[in-house]
């Protein structure tokens, strides 16, 4: 599964993207954030404040309960600030 990061989430984790395989039992966006945040200190620091984290699954905005099974690309980023 391809993970892509943007803005300060990208800077804090330290890479633009990475290929990762979530373990069995990681079924939803909320599960995925719990697992990913425990990988190392960079991921943990980037994901510690869930109120400041947004997720898109295959380019569509997702909520905590959105399933990630079968997804190709998971994007993690701060609340958007365009316009």
């Amino acid at each position: 599964m391809k993970f892509v990061y943007f803005a300060w989430v990208r800077e804090t984790i330290g890479v633009d993207e990475e290929a990762l395989t979530p373990p069995a039992g990681v079924n939803t966006v909320a599960d995925m954030l719990d697992w990913l945040g425990g990988l190392d200190s960079g991921h943990g620091e980037a994901l510690k404040d869930r109120a400041r984290i947004r997720v898109a699954v295959d380019q569509a905005i997702a909520g905590p309960e959105t399933p990630i099974g079968g997804a190709t690309e998971i994007a993690i980023f701060p609340p958007v600030t365009g316009g």
């Binding site: 943007f6 803005a7 994007a75 701060p78 958007v80 600030t81 365009g82 316009g83």
Partner: peptide, 26 residues
């Protein structure tokens, strides 16, 4: 413009004349 501001995936990073830089908060 109201929906674009909260739904389109753009992020702004500001640079200041004193050398500071920061990501704009929503």
């Amino acid at each position: 413009i109201d929906w674009l501001k909260v739904k389109a995936p753009f992020w702004k990073r500001e640079e200041f004349t004193d050398g500071a830089a920061r990501w704009v908060e929503a």
